[in-house]
Amino acid sequence: MKGFLLIVGRDLRLALRQSADAWLAVLFFVLTGALFPFGIGPDASLLKVIAPGIIWVVALLAVLLSLERLFLADYEDGSLEQLLLSPLPLELAILGKVLAHWLTTGLPLIAAAPVLAVLFNMDMAGLGTLLLAMLLGTPVLSLIGAIGAALTLGARRGGVLIPLLVLPLYIPALIFGVGATDSALAGLSARPDLLLLGAVLLVMLVVTPLAGAAALRQALE
């Protein structure tokens, strides 16, 4: 447990000293979201309806943008092989790095989501559900993304490859995340969608450490 906290602490410190990276993801999130009214037209009633979907898709893309740096720097400077040779189980080290990634990417996106909700004139009754769904869903994005980031280490065009591997796997989180918010906006219960989103989170909490460790081990062979 101590080793796990050490990893989280180190990655947070690294992220804070290079805080431009985290800001870029948030900026990307808001800017890309703000593009849609230009593409669709400023029809308030239409924007209101598609707001949850747009916010989720844009959040997903913002996370995607930040995935490459998850393991790449550690891979290139030799930290990853030292991590592999530390007494801390690699599975735990991966969870620590994912937690730090979520704290520096997912959490700022959640904080920025109300801005987009306001820009899209979303019904504020659904805002709580949107944020709750993002709280459950963005860790899933970090967890699945970690597998893609680990698998593409050392690959040609690794950064371009990650979206191809990760996006199809993001679809369930997207469906349940938007579903929860849509239900809340329609005055229905968001519970089923939120529970399903939680279930996906639990599954990925088990799958990512195992698959990630296998991927990192083979990357360092």
Binding site: R10, R13, L14, R17, Q18, E76, D77, G78, S79, E81
Partner: peptide, 10 residues
């Protein structure tokens, strides 16, 4: 190994 595992910002 050949790599030093030294973080530039620490």
């Amino acid at each position: 190994g050949h790599l030093e595992a030294v973080k530039p910002v620490l």
